[in-house]
Amino acid sequence: MQSRKVLLITGASTGIGEAAARQAVASGYRVVLAARSTEKLEALREELGENNAIAVTCDVSDWKAQQNMLNTTLERYGQIDAVFANAGFSKGSPFYGGENKFEEWKEMVLTNVFGAAVTARLCLPELVKTKGHFLITGSVVGHITSIRNLYAATKWAVSAIAQAVRNEMVGTGIRVTLLEPGVVDTPFWEAIPKPGTPELEPEDIARAMMYAISQPPHVDVNQVLIRPTGQPH
């Protein structure tokens, strides 16, 4: 009997990552839950069940923490079939006006860009073995910039990471999917004002993720741009 597939999710403690974990387990996957919040991760792991999930505290901006995440995954499950590089946040620091919060910028770039790149660099060799799937969370503002802060630039970088990984992995059997959500009702908005537009639920993005990874091996869903009905840009 073939072992159940393994999906590693960063930013798994809340929002899109949390919803993705639930839907993946419901579809038969075993999941690795990675995030900075140990307490939230453990609560989700307990909900999903010890046969379905493990929790690994990990700050993706820390290379060694990600190495530990990878090693823990392989020690427990021995394989990785899909990776969802989902960790990211925005502090909303503008380019002009307001306070100078350069440390916020640094933390955001290290998480959103460096962290996603490290996840790819460490996990791709394992995905080659399983002809697996690399998924990454971008944003509508990494497609059409409509906000005035550095967050949009980090998501343009994520779009570039997805394309670069896809180009590099041609011939390996690895699939690459960039998910670009519009406004989603998640804790993301705790740090910045939520726009007065319709919004998606985290489960909507999780379904898009499951759609991509459930396709047959010869089908590579490269990009999913998903807005709530009525969001103008």
Rank of each mutant, 00 (worst) to 15 (best):
Q79P: 00
N86H: 04
N86R: 02
N86Q: 04
N86D: 10
F89M: 11
S90T: 15
S90F: 12
K91T: 14
P94T: 10
F95M: 03
Y96V: 15
Y96F: 15
N100L: 15
K101Y: 01
F102W: 11
F102S: 09
E103A: 13
E104Q: 12
W105V: 14
W105H: 08
K106F: 08
E107C: 05
M108L: 15
V109M: 13
N112C: 13
V113F: 09
F114H: 04
G115Q: 08
A116Y: 01
A116Q: 09
A117D: 01
V118M: 09
V118E: 04
T119W: 00
A120C: 08
A120P: 02
R121L: 14
L122M: 05
C123H: 08
L124Q: 06
P125F: 14
E126P: 02
V128W: 01
K129Y: 06
T130I: 06
T130L: 05
G132P: 06
H133F: 13
F134Q: 07
L135G: 12
I136E: 09
T137F: 06
G138I: 12
G138R: 05
S139W: 10
V141S: 04
V141Y: 04
V141K: 00
H143W: 10
H143P: 00
I144R: 12
I144T: 10
A153L: 08
A160F: 02
V165H: 02
R166H: 11
R166F: 07
E168G: 04
M169G: 00
G173C: 06
G173E: 03
T177S: 02
L178S: 13
L179M: 15
G182V: 10
V183C: 14
V183I: 15
V184N: 07
D185I: 13
P187L: 12
W189C: 03
W189G: 02
E190G: 08
E190Q: 13
P193M: 11
K194C: 07
T197R: 11
L200W: 12
L200R: 09
E203Q: 15
R207K: 15
R207I: 06
R207Q: 15
A208F: 02
M209F: 14
S214N: 13
P217S: 11
H218T: 01
V219C: 05
V221G: 00
V221K: 00
V221P: 00
N222I: 03
N222C: 08
Q223I: 08
Q223L: 13
Q223C: 11
